[in-house]
Amino acid sequence: MAVASEGLTLPAVVEELLSEMAAAVQENARIPDEHLSSLKFIFGPSAIQALDLVDRQSITLITSPSGRRAYQVLGSSGKMYTCLASCHYCSCPAFAFSVLRKSDGLLEPRAPSRSKTESHNSLFQRRKHYPPKSRELFLQASLGSLS
């Protein structure tokens, strides 16, 4: 309700969509097509590339006995990247290039589309203003679809 009073923002929409997806996955162990279409609508081509990483089982959630979590993402080049679960960070070059350097405020031409290895990170670029929970929910929902 608080969301409605402040006006619907994109992060709020994403948050709700991801919650719905997580619920759907828990119920049916699969993500309904309309949710995937919504993802594509919001994130553009990045959504497909991110889901491709999921389909390849390239994303691993690592949990310590004390409950700390991190995601490992295997790029198609075979390199392993680490994504922190609680805030926006990925160790891949695309994160440094598209997300961090972009925030420098330098007027740079937009990077041409890169290999699939790096493409999942453009997701973070598009979502950099979103609450950290969004990404985790997205990854959880995506991971859930594997089972």
Binding site: S66, G67, R68, A70, L84, A85, S86, C87, H88, Y89, S91, F95, A96, L100, R101, D104
Partner: peptide, 23 residues
């Protein structure tokens, strides 16, 4: 340190605090 290493340190600080919060 490059920007990515700086971001890593900042993100790791947040992640550590988030883990403590979780505990």
């Amino acid at each position: 340190l490059g920007p990515q290493d700086t971001a890593y340190l900042a993100a790791l600080l947040l992640d550590t605090a988030a883990h403590y919060s979780h505990q």
